[in-house]
Design a binder for these strands. Structure first.
Lengths: 337, 337
DNA sequence: CTGAAAGCGCTTACAG
DNA sequence: CTGAAAGCGCTTACAG
């Protein structure tokens, strides 16, 4: 190992019979190197186990090789999955992945962002909900011309990388899934209405209801706020407003869990009396009993691709494609088999 | 901002009327600088908003200024809290915090660790359970003489920083808490027996039982594995083995949740029929309904302190104190008020 | 307790 | 398509 650490660009250049500049070009994927030389350099580097010294690159190039993920999300499973996708992409490209939790309690978002950008150099930023919809934050980033990517933004930005799923389509397919299983009395349990995703999922719900010609009176909407507690409370509303309901679409898994716990506590059987489908395929959806049927989005891949595209943008200084839609699937489990 | 970025050690030296070496010494907390000069330098740096260039430090010193947290823990809340504590400490000391998830599926732990240490320089390592009890991993680290810290290790190491809580004492205090609330028929729901923490918590349980002179037949042990599912199943065992039980101590919150869900499903009331205390004070313990009384350990502080001490060790090359015990407290909630 | 010189391993213009 | 020189902003011996 210590032998590896001593290897420099010069050693590789000598072995390969080229100048250090050529080696540098190869490792930066820069143009103007004949393919043949490129192969030789890469071969020598592989044989000797050469790893470029990141600090030297940073210092000389005045770039940081750091991609930072800004978030403010209490859902650590979601944040961890994003980090993992970023980390993989960064490691492939010789970058560092850093996660920064914006703390809205002390001062504004914007302030913590500014503080951060002042203290640390970053080459690119990744924002996830709800930060990805914070226009003040986005303005600050655009002002500094830092390449950035938005994960599941409510409003897609032209000068950014946007990765997302078809929220409305997902809402439709969950509703269809319930309808196909014979449910004729349905409920949608919403998240915070300020989140675009919740509104879009609901739109898909109503579209599917209409298309299946289910009478409007047999389909209700319950208000939640994405918290487990609100799912718990929603069950009481359901009993009052629409006791005949048998199929429920919750806008996230936490609410689905809360609702199921409430239902069990009142002697209802899941899925026999009440079938529930969640959204996110969170680890708890798997661990709960009954386990929860849920719509999965490929968060890890979304983070991985956006990081890759971000690094491409940083290198070429050109934003080629700005929108990437990912597909989802429903994972069938105990709460709605 | 761009003005700040241009500031170098030279600017500060000039302003402060000292050599750059003195400035460097001040920023590295090195000895041999008169306090008066130190204050001047620090004052000038503050006024101008100077931030040392990390890459330059890395390159010149051949240190990475990176502290890496190795883990393999499905509990993302726990991992995130550790990361947050590390990140705070690192940011105070001008270090980078990195989290690396060891993937035991592909190849051994040890291999992924070696791969990592080969690819990246790190100045220090932090290990959390279960990695903190993997002696093969620890051997590799000690062989390389990398300073490291263990969070809640089963076996404390002499040549490492160890941060931990009194697991047995925590088990005692939870049991006492139940006893003080009048429960005379108790159950302990264990985690994986291979985890030292679970065994120690159980030892505390039995100690408290004995001290309170509760007949052994009124206290049972149920086997779990830390999973929510195992808590769910444990309820059936409980009904068979010890139907008179009213007070339950679960070795973690997930099992407490599983057990409560099972109990609710069978028409039991919590806490009226069954009082449950968990361990970890996880976000779900707060969010559940009923919310769960749980023992909280200061994970964030444990990570923060161990990172600080680790950096101190790196700088001085001296490991001063190797053991740090943290205190815990029981957070009273709905499941056992 | 303090300073002037050399060097860490790369990249950036610049020249060809 | 390729190379020799200068320099990024620090720290490390070394000397005093």
């Amino acid at each position: 190992m210590s032998a590896n650490k001593k290897l420099t660009i010069e050693d590789i250049a000598k072995k390969a019979g080229v100048s250090i500049k050529t080696v540098s070009r190869v490792f930066n994927n820069a143009p103007n190197v004949r393919q043949q030389k490129r192969d030789i350099v890469l071969g020598v580097a592989r044989d000797l186990g050469y790893q470029p010294n990141i600090s030297a690159r940073q210092l000389a190039s005045k770039r940081s090789f750091v991609i930072s993920h800004f978030h403010d999300n209490p859902n650590t499973d979601y944040v961890s999955e994003i980090y993992e996708g970023m980390r993989r992409a960064c490691s492939e490209e010789g970058y560092y992945a850093v996660a920064e939790k914006l703390n809205p309690q002390k001062g504004s978002y914007r302030q913590s962002l500014l503080d951060y950008l002042l203290r640390f150099e970053v080459d690119g930023l990744i924002l996830s909900p709800p930060v990805s919809d914070d226009q003040a934050v986005i303005r600050e980033i655009e002002k500094r011309e830092i390449p950035y990517a938005l994960i599941s933004p409510g409003k897609k930005k032209k000068r950014a990388i946007n990765v997302f799923i078809d929220e409305k389509g997902a809402g439709r397919s969950i509703t269809d899934y319930l309808i196909n299983r014979g449910h004729e009395n349905l409920a949608f349990l919403s998240g915070l209405n300020s989140h675009a995703a919740s509104r879009q999922r609901e739109a898909g719900y109503w579209e599917a209801i209409e298309e299946a010609q289910i009478p409007k009176k047999n389909a209700v909407r319950l208000s939640g706020d994405f918290s487990m507690r609100s799912g718990f409370t929603a069950f009481d509303m359901l009993v009052k407003k629409a006791p005949k309901t048998t199929g429920i679409f919750a806008a996230n898994d936490e609410m689905a869990i809360g609702l199921i716990v409430a239902a069990l506590g009142k002697g209802k059987k899941v899925p026999e009396d009440l079938s529930v489908v969640g959204f996110d395929d969170s680890p708890f959806a798997r661990a709960m009993w009954p386990s929860i049927t849920s719509l999965a989005q490929p968060v890890d891949e979304m983070a991985h691709l956006s990081t890759k595209k971000l690094i491409g943008w940083i290198h070429s200084n050109i934003l080629e494609q700005s929108r990437f839609e990912f597909s989802t699937k429903i994972i069938e489990r105990g709460s709605c088999p």
